[in-house]
Design a binder for these strands. Structure first.
Lengths: 193, 193, 193, 193
DNA sequence: CTCTAATCGAGACGGTACGTCGCGTCTTACG
DNA sequence: CGTAAGACGCGACGTACCGTCTCGATTAGAG
């Protein structure tokens, strides 16, 4: 029989329950991260908070780190997408301001992303994004290996944001952006020039 | 009753078996770290490798992280002790060279310390040491909070060393030292000036 | 009320698909039983082998044991129906021969019915059938309670058949029938006399 | 110095905790069997009833069936040990009386052993014991294979006991013994003669 | 050299979390 | 509208480590 070709296998998952479950799990994890470290969180915590069956977790993510990475990559992609145009315009300070502003607006989430033992995963996502950026504007540098430059820039950025948000009374985003630009981004870009 | 009180606690006189057990445990951990992440290592692995009873571990360390910290702080103290005189002499490049040379000479150990999921602990030890240094030479800085400066310097240093040692063919220590000095230490010191 | 649609339900007129699905499920179970115990078989195995949707199983049977019982009772009824006339003629040996012959002809199936952890269900079906027989020819017996007699006769019969079929080189059906008659049926009948 | 030679490596397990745990588990299982089938019992039920950690179960038995077998074999061995001398003296009725008396005295336990879906395991143990007996008194038989004879005798015995104990008002042990002897044991022995 | 207490090995134990499996129900989208 | 495909809630499974504990057997060093 010819026919049925159309439907039977749609490449991507179509069942709406799948999307819903994943959404619930991500939300639950964010909530829990406000109170505990990722490694203090147990899978049952997540499924309970998401009001989802225990096994359902494994139907979507192999580990809690995978769920975390999903979360992190979405956030990182979003912030990069916002800052990138400015970078393209070579206006690094403006890019930093955009970044810091966004982070500050979502400071509750970002604080947990950066300080709850999750920073490793966030850093990995930033690195991924930074490498993509770098390839588009590859500039050779005599004395500083590109990969090292990226690593340092990313790690400093993350470290700075983490420090900033963990302050009892964080400085204004504008100032954080200035520091970030002056101490990390501008040197990095000028090196690359 | 006075008893043989004398025996019980001479603060620094310890049963030689104690020292021996701890040594065995540290050695065992170092060995294991060459093959696995700290969190892949379980306590039984350590005690087996050390050829020591399982409970003996807990007689000396509450967790494997404590053992790791013991290890890390010894190493960090040693390398700081070597580099510090140079720093005092304001010869930062020379301090960097000393640091990199030492690390390179013990690269097998340091590679595992910096890359086997242990970097967080090492960084903590470096921070501890760096803060001590900083207090001795406290300089005010208008635009860069001291604590942030330290944090960034330490994290960049650790990141750089980790990157360096994880290369298939690491560049010579002298070059690593130059980069370290130029990109991390010199800016940090000049800021502080 | 005559119901609205003609379609719905004439008690014995069943949707032909129903019969088909059940048939497929029974066939599938028989096939699977050649390789595994009933309790090693899971419902997904059956539906996969029957090339039927998973939920379809539950539209016809509440558990795999129910399916098994369905299977077993059909077989037992058949064999009883064949042997019974002989029993009525008091020709017990002949009845045994009929039984053993039938079983031997379907030995692949019966072997699995008797040895794959299914014997309990088969025995239950035999008991059911045997009790029906017994009521038609109820004879009192001074020292042996009737129910016990039936139980022993059935269990010995099943045990004997199971042993027989599980032999690497089973003896001929005629001999099995003789043993069965001599050791189980004849004594049972004479007791009842 | 001979030392306390006795201790260091005794081939069998010496730790008293082991014996205690196993005892607790067996006791717990017996208790639970009075209320549920073996397969309705879940390992957590056993460990809870035994007031023992869940994992402790697996330190001693791989499955609940293994625990059950342990229990069963102990009982079977005991009863066989009591009846065997009589059998040796060819006094089969007396052996049956001994058996039935013992079983009746422990009827609560035996009822569960024989009717709670455990009979298969008990039968297996009886078979084991019966085969041992049989080898010591191996007699050839022209028309009845020895293994089949044993199988039938054991299964009938078990079936009879199960029927007996499951009666609302069980007949006296003496009468059960007579039936057992007359219908199972005596024929079996005379066959073997 | 003896005696006593600290330390040790061995490993059982009560727990918690894991990741898997199968059940039986319920949902979805297609034909 | 019925059915395949399969997601879901549930709960038992058996495993892995954890950190605590009990045991004797060594061993160190004070008397």
């Amino acid at each position: 029989m010819k026919k049925k070709t159309s439907k039977t296998k749609n490449p991507e998952v179509t069942d709406p329950r799948v999307g819903r479950s994943r959404e619930l799990l991500r939300k639950a994890l964010v909530t829990l991260l406000e109170k505990k470290t990722l490694e203090q969180i147990v899978i049952r915590d997540i499924t309970d908070a998401a009001r989802v069956g225990y096994a359902t977790f494994y139907r979507h993510y192999p580990t809690k780190e995978a769920l975390m990475t999903d979360l992190a990559s979405k956030e990182v992609d979003r912030v990069i997408a916002m800052a990138q145009p400015k970078t393209d315009a070579a206006d690094t300070l403006s890019a930093c301001v955009t970044l810091c502003t966004y982070v500050h607006e979502h400071r509750v989430l970002w604080k947990t992303l950066l300080t709850r033992g999750v920073d490793t995963l966030i850093k990995k996502e930033f690195l991924r994004a930074a490498r993509e950026l770098a390839t588009t504007r590859a500039k050779s540098n005599h004395w500083l290996p590109a990969e090292l430059g990226i690593t340092l820039a990313v790690s400093s950025t993350v470290e700075l944001l983490a420090w900033w948000l963990s302050q009892a009374k964080p400085m204004p985003g504008k100032r954080a952006a200035e520091i970030l630009n002056r101490i990390v981004i501008a040197p990095a870009v000028s090196q690359a020039a």
